[in-house]
Amino acid sequence: MSFTDTPLSRIKLLNPTYPNKATGVINGQNSGLLNWNDIAYPQMYDLYQTLLSNFWKAQEINMQDDIKQWDYLTETEKDVFLRINTQLASLDSLQTPTMTQVMDYVTDSSFKAIFAVISQQEAVHNESYSYILSSLVPLAEQNKRFDQAKEDPVVQKRNQLILDHYEAFREEPTPQKLYELAINSINLEGIYFYAGFAFFYHLARQQKMLKTSTMISYIQRDEMQHAYFISQFIRILLTENPELNTDENIQYAYDTIDRAVQLEKEWANYILEDIEGIDLEEFHHYVEYLANKRFRQIGLDNYYPERDNPMAWIHVFSDEMMNETKSDFFEQKSRTYTKVSSSNGFDEL
């Protein structure tokens, strides 16, 4: 059996004879002890810090404004709002246990720690959707909406792509299946959320449901870090294991992300059809632009035509916009200089 198809073994908690600094992300030697000052990929400590500095919880956001506004949404807006909410919740529900499961097979303890934080954040996201729902509709309606998400054929079809690969890794945790899981994790975190994000940011553009979109913005900020981490994980996995770095696997990435792009477009056509102000063709271009970014993040070439962001308003709120007082965890470079621009006699390209 080739290396790529040989199941990884679950890692013993402590291997005292092995070094603290892992010799590989998978199939490596690692004692299981984590000293962040002695890790194979020091940039992972920065990433870990950034993830922690993003910490937030749903209860910090007061839903009163949204509760008042809810009654003024159209029936269509309310329906789409609830459908997207439960659909996103179901994606996050998948991600929490999957990230925890991957931890059992990754040798490098710094990566385990990051997977643990990601898993925790997905649990927070999951809770935030429940928090939004509980503010707006009674439990019977919430349950109905979750059942609707489970039964919806378009939702099922798009989740199936992810589920199949996540299940395959559960059944047989080989390096190949871990790679496929990681690509599908990019699909989930880096592609599948965006039709939903578009809807909430679109409401925010009209000054509607701003508390909800504040939470969505926090979620997007987390998801971007997750997709970034997974893309780094993929690059390290392929570099350390040249047996995985094959033409077939590169093609797999193109094919699978393209499949997710098609499914996301289909979902957008279905869920955003009646929402005024979101041009579906423009959104299709947006999804392609998004997928190009994902390809470049994993070190591949653009797959779709090169274009500028057609929907620049799908964007994490800045601290100024959120009037956030919580300062960054890191010591920040103080902005003591006046902002200058090309009108000051240099060029900005």
């Binding site: 470049r296 993040q297 240099f346 060029d347 900005e348 390209l349």
Partner: peptide, 10 residues
């Protein structure tokens, strides 16, 4: 300062 250049990802 003469010029700046910003690029999205790769």
């Amino acid at each position: 300062l003469t010029v700046t250049l910003k690029v999205e990802l790769m």
